[in-house]
């Protein structure tokens, strides 16, 4: 176990990335996108200003779910799909802790799909980082609930016949208050999204496109590769028009109920015609639309898609308890024991 080695400033320990690296050997396949996610997570932690002992990483089962072993924080590698339940109980009982759920596409959307819906609708104040590689890696290459239709894998030799889920669409449908996407190959962007997720008060859902170089290599390369990224991804910025392209000359416009890609300067189109990104919009319709935009018809949106405020479950729970104590007083068992009709036997 590595102990904090930073300086003390005003009695507060200043931590560095190294303080979050555990003594466990990292055992993902060389070249796996999970390395990048781990590195950015370790990098962002000291920036958040939380005492290390108050941070807890909870995961389910799968390649991604090994991550807590490598973080020198409190952590639990639990059972398949159930990390949100454990995290919910921990956060509801200890609201002062910073709780992070690490999960994958199979863990969060197949076996644990139900829990994902409910943690989001409750808006428990925690972060959910979903490593989406569109494949089952740990069990060696079966299709996942986000695999594209028709995908050939070990368990679908002639192609899958079940339609994939879109994680962000699911999250929005579950009333998520914070929905974001980032990619493993853009560390700088990922750090920004992780910071925003932490700052959000409520459930923060982040999908990370993560390359599985063994079983699904290049799944996202068509649009995440450095040379095409600017043309094929839409970097969302709050309050800014949705512009993309190497030349910054393409944008997204609403046409009726549909988005469309337009070129600035063509047919008299100006920046003013483009959709302006508003992550705080109470109505989720545009966020829903963004969550469905995919390459090659559209650039793939990344960044914070939605960030709205709604009371959190843990705050409401605390408030109910404080209210009960204020109104009824601190509970006394002597009174509770004798509630209702009692009688004395002489």
């Amino acid at each position: 176990m590595v102990t904090a080695n930073g300086d003390k400033k005003d009695g507060v320990q200043v931590l560095s990335r190294k303080d979050f690296v555990s003594d466990q050997e990292v055992r993902w396949c060389p070249g796996c996108g999970d390395y990048s996610i781990l590195a950015q997570t370790q990098k962002v932690m000291p920036e958040l200003g939380i005492p290390r002992e108050n941070i807890v990483f909870i995961s389910g089962i799968g390649c991604s779910s090994r991550l807590p072993y490598y973080m020198d924080t409190y952590g639990m590698h639990s059972i398949h799909g159930r990390a949100p339940t454990i995290a919910s109980g921990l956060k509801a009982s200890r609201p002062e802790l910073s709780v992070w759920v690490v999960t994958g596409d199979g863990d969060a959307l197949s076996i644990g799909g139900n829990h994902l819906l409910h943690v989001l609708r409750r808006n428990i104040d925690l972060q959910i980082i979903l490593h989406n590689n569109q494949i089952y890696g740990l069990t060696k290459g079966q299709y996942s609930p986000t695999s594209e239709l028709g995908k050939r894998t070990k368990s679908s030799p002639v192609g899958t016949i079940d339609a994939p889920l879109h994680p962000l669409t699911v999250a929005l449908g579950a009333e998520a208050t914070f929905v974001a996407r980032t990619v493993d190959v853009d560390p700088h962007h990922m750090v920004g999204v992780l910071e925003r997720a932490y700052q959000h008060h409520g459930s923060a859902f982040c999908e990370v496109y993560q390359n599985c170089n063994i079983y699904n290599d290049g799944a996202f390369a068509d649009f995440t590769a450095k040379e095409v990224r600017a043309d094929r991804m839409l970097f969302l910025e709050h309050g800014k028009p949705m512009i993309f392209g190497k030349e910054r000359n393409k944008g997204i416009r609403i046409n009726g109920l549909q988005p469309e890609v337009v070129e600035i300067g063509v047919d008299g189109i100006t920046e003013a015609d483009l959709l302006v990104h508003d992550e705080t919009r109470p109505d989720p319709t545009i966020a829903f639309m963004l969550s469905r935009m995919s390459y090659p018809d559209f650039p793939v949106p990344i960044g914070v898609i939605r960030a709205v405020q709604r009371p959190t479950y843990d705050d409401l729970m605390t408030a109910q308890i404080e209210h009960a104590v204020a109104v009824e007083g601190e509970g006394d068992l002597r009174t509770l024991f004798t509630e209702g009709d009692t009688w004395v036997v002489e």
Partner: peptide, 28 residues
């Protein structure tokens, strides 16, 4: 029993119910 500090969590299913309890126990 809220004024006794008791927290009750009506979970989405039986698994979530025990999961939440385990999370709470992990937290002391």
């Amino acid at each position: 029993f809220k004024n006794f500090g008791v927290k009750t969590f009506q979970a989405e299913d039986e698994i979530a119910a025990v999961g939440a309890a385990i999370g709470a126990s992990f937290g002391g």
